[in-house]
């Protein structure tokens, strides 16, 4: 009950100072805002802080991603590397190929979750009313999806490197070892960035998460299938492979390691150029969509 003021309270009116203060502390600014968007997105796609059933799929994918590394380290430890002359176990650039179906299905869920919900719920406008701009918002999302993808693309390979080293089957000498590590990091992050951008661009076309997933899966697997058929059954040029958004980043990864890769018919320069092309196309598509979307 009101108890301020004297006299009959029915004809008494007063506006009270409710003590709003300006925030005088240090502000974390754009960097802080980006960090928190990226962190929040990461939590939501991995199902952290949510019910167990949201964690099932991420956990399954992480297990699938680490499984090959574990198996091949185990084989090396048990059988020794010399026995098979290194033929049995894959190269570093080959390892992520073993779980590629799970990886693509994972980006098909992660990218829509990261992007679509904000538009559908009107959160985008809220974010844009903070120090974030469209560009910094998108950069945070890209960083988040790339980071999550690195867990299943880069981390298992690093574990593999450490495991092989432990089994005395790793690269010889400190210099080679460091070179391998740098190559793993550079190639893995490049693959993660490309997959992140492509899947985010695909998800940006619709406001419904389910259709965004369909669009990511259809574009990535669909192009792969079409390229396979055109090369395999329609006498298409090997260079059509450059249109395959799943294999071309992986192929670049092989070239970073100096290997011939899976498609040795294609020269190295076009592989790099095609990846640059995918990067530009996906980034532009995403940017074009967001230049006007939302707020």
């Amino acid at each position: 009950m009101t108890s301020t003021g004297a006299g009959d309270s029915t004809d008494h009116a007063e506006i009270l100072d409710r003590g709003y203060r300006r925030f005088d502390g240090r502000r974390s600014g754009v960097a802080g805002a980006m960090r928190s968007v990226a962190w929040h997105t990461t939590r939501s796609v991995l199902g952290l802080g949510r019910k167990a059933r949201h964690k099932v799929f991420p956990v399954v994918v992480v297990v699938i991603a680490f499984l090959p590394a574990v198996i091949f380290i185990g084989l090396t430890l048990i059988l020794g590397n010399d026995l098979f002359d290194g033929e049995l176990v894959p190269e570093f650039w080959e390892l992520p190929r073993n779980s590629i179906a799970a990886t693509v299905l994972f980006v098909g869920l992660v990218a829509p979750e990261a992007l679509v919900r904000d538009r559908r719920d009107g959160m985008l406008s809220l974010y844009l009313s903070t120090p974030l701009t469209r560009l910094t918002y998108l950069l945070s999302k890209i960083a988040s999806v790339t980071g999550v993808l690195s867990i299943i693309v880069v981390a298992p390979t690093i574990m593999y490197l450490l495991g092989l080293t432990f089994a005395s089957a790793g690269p010889d000498g400190f210099r080679d070892w460091m070179l391998a590590l740098v190559r793993i990091l550079v190639s893995g992050i490049a693959v993660s960035v490309l997959y992140a951008l492509i899947s985010l661009a695909c998800s940006s076309v619709t406001d419904r998460r389910a259709f965004a997933s369909v669009s990511v899966i259809m574009i990535m697997f669909g192009l792969l299938t079409i390229v396979d058929i055109l090369i395999g059954s329609a006498d298409g040029s090997e260079y059509l492979r450059l249109l395959d958004p799943i294999n071309i980043p992986l192929e670049m990864s092989a070239r970073i390691f100096g290997a011939d890769g899976v498609y040795p018919e294609i020269a190295t320069a076009p592989v790099y150029l095609a990846n640059l092309g995918w990067f530009v196309v996906a980034a532009s598509a995403l940017w074009l969509r967001y230049r006007k979307a939302g707020a």
Binding site: A101, L105, G108, L109, R209, A210, F211, S213, V214, I217, F221
Partner: peptide, 11 residues
Amino acid sequence: NAIVWGLGYVI
């Protein structure tokens, strides 16, 4: 999320 589960089933 029937579409997502369905995609998982199909793929």
